[in-house]
Write a protein that binds this DNA or RNA. Structure first.
Lengths: 204, 204
DNA sequence: AAATATTTTAATCAGTTGATTAAAATATTT
DNA sequence: AAATATTTTAATCAACTGATTAAAATATTT
């Protein structure tokens, strides 16, 4: 048997296809994506896709798991760090999340959409529950405001970070901000969000 | 020429198809919706759909305009009312929006998604810019915080109201809340959001 | 009630889409 | 270099999808 082919190209065909799939799937969603779109984006033949990944479904599964990890993987260790204060957590989450989402602007809408069309399938595979109920961060929130369901604050934190990226197409198309102004606005929020969250946690 | 056929059924075939289209389109999105799904949901033949609406595209256009009006139509008059204070506006927006979205839970994700895949097409048809830049509410926000881009606060208000509905599939599937608990949580936010927004507007 | 117009249906079409296949091209081993 | 294994391609398939059509059923007008 011959060994795996020497990689002479910059990137292997398989990786080219995965990269194309990342782009097209996150941009258009599963249903609107045709396997031919992916092959074309990769500059390769359609049959290659099925040769390497067996099916559109299987390729999507791979990309989706990657993207879920990308979106939820960041927050878990930050929210669960026993060595940081709540304020430090807020700063870290706002900063790191905003940086990551700036480089992957349509990641949130993509994930939220695919989860809605197939909830059990993907949510069960991530330790999402921990963010919302078992984390160190939740404990710290409960200490400060035992009178309010901590879920409210988690929703607010994530919403403040994520929602601008979800609303971006509307903001840009309705002329509220171009790409540059959006980037500047988003950057301001790294400092503002921790400030705001502290404020709403004190509000009575 | 005969006059329009007497409606003996409870609802006309045309309205049955529109109602089915509302349901299926908002649930699955344009791309994942097959015209046969809509016909079946309406309990009618596929040819009827093309007979009444000419094409999937045209039927979608009708539903989409309805849904845009439903989502953005509420907020414009509230945000632009010169007779109410900012605080009254916040209370009215939180309350009315949450009620409307409770009855149309997947409206936000549907709209945001379709706008992303076709921004110019739909945004231009709504006076969305007014919410963000020209409204009375924006003026009132500027008065209180001339040092911060008012867009931040509009994003926060809308995010606090809308984001829970977008995140609901994750919350429910990850076991954070069932439908009843989600409804209760959302209801609490009617009072909490105006409180929170006032708090973040004071935060320094 | 007959004639005319409208609504509804079943059958079918053409284009698209995910997937397969067999053969050609390329790489690896002997 | 010959033999063998792997990778890539063009051609093709079957199922699906949006749309059309012609005829049947129903309603309206005369």
């Amino acid at each position: 048997m011959a060994k795996k082919k020497e990689i002479v190209e910059d990137v292997s065909a398989e990786e080219k296809l995965k990269e194309a799939a990342r782009k097209v799937f996150t941009q258009k969603g599963y249903a609107a994506t045709r396997t031919r779109d992916i092959a074309e984006e990769a500059g390769l033949n359609l049959a290659l896709l099925n040769y390497y990944f067996r099916s559109k479904e299987k390729l999507f599964e791979i990309i989706m798991m990657e993207k879920l990890q990308q979106l939820f993987g960041i927050i878990l260790p930050l929210a669960n760090d026993p060595s940081t204060s709540l304020d430090e957590k807020l700063k870290a989450i706002a900063s790191e999340y905003i940086d990551m989402l700036s480089a992957n602007e349509n990641l949130p809408l993509f994930i939220l959409n695919e989860i809605r069309s197939n909830p059990e399938r993907f949510v069960s595979k991530m330790q999402i529950a921990k963010i919302f109920s078992d984390s160190v961060m939740i404990k710290q929130i409960k200490e400060k405001r035992p009178d309010i369901n901590p879920l409210h604050f988690v929703i607010n934190i994530l919403g403040m970070v994520v929602f601008p990226f979800i609303a971006k197409p509307i903001l840009v198309t309705s002329g509220q901000a171009d790409n540059k102004a959006f980037g500047a606005l988003i950057n301001e929020r790294k400092k503002l969000i921790p400030l705001w969250v502290k404020a709403i946690m004190k509000a009575k």
